[in-house]
Design a protein around this nucleic acid. Structure first.
Lengths: 105, 105
DNA sequence: GTACAATATGCGCATAATCGCATATTGTCA
DNA sequence: TGACAATATGCGATTATGCGCATATTGTAC
């Protein structure tokens, strides 16, 4: 893998590397949702949410479509969630490892 | 999923969300390597590399062990590569999608 | 046309990430 | 002990991110 390839992978990962965006992607695995629904996921200002969604869209992770006044977002890449599952396992393992280190050392 | 869980997942993703760190993780799937070897992967200053490795370690993605003067890094989570593969698919799809948009619009 | 609802964007500020350089630490060998 | 190799850390400068507020856009209904 060359640096250019690594950069494009990193771009995607960066798009996912935010708590709210993780929540958004997870929510969208259950099906498309409009911004007004997604806005209930976390206590965030609407303009911020809109920015996060735009960012995910730019990265190619989601797409959007308009229906009347509402805009629905769609998860283009369910495989991303499998990646997140793995990441979660890593996190748990890491926490355990650190606990062990603290107990031992 | 609550915000705390999302945050811990985002932490892992953030750790991976850098071109050099993507390269490092990929390189380590082939087996443990010392910093001096990893330093050949990209044109980066040694102290920078050390920082990136420390970051991956803090996130629980890699571990290190000392052997004489050298420090070897070990990938704790080969499953991470699936995330990278997925990210790559997303990236490719994104490029295709943009081409189509350019052609259509 | 007005009024309103849903969503997006411009802007300024605060915080975090990254980098390069110098320097410190740790281990080996003579 | 001193000299050197491998790695890590402190610091300052630059750049990128995220946030909240105000405002703009787009669509609907009257």
């Amino acid at each position: 893998m060359n640096y250019a390839q690594a950069r494009s992978r990193a771009e995607i990962l960066k798009a996912l590397a935010h708590p709210l965006r993780v929540l958004l992607v997870e929510a969208l695995t259950g099906g498309d949702q409009c911004v007004c629904e997604l806005n209930k996921l976390a206590d965030i200002d609407q303009s911020g949410l809109s920015r996060h969604l735009a960012l995910l869209k730019r990265a190619g992770v989601v797409s959007d479509r308009r229906e009347g006044m509402k805009v629905f977002y769609h998860l283009e890449t369910p495989c991303i969630m499998r990646a997140l599952e793995c990441a979660f396992e890593v996190a748990k393992a890491g926490v355990k490892r650190n606990r062990k280190l603290l107990a031992t050392g």
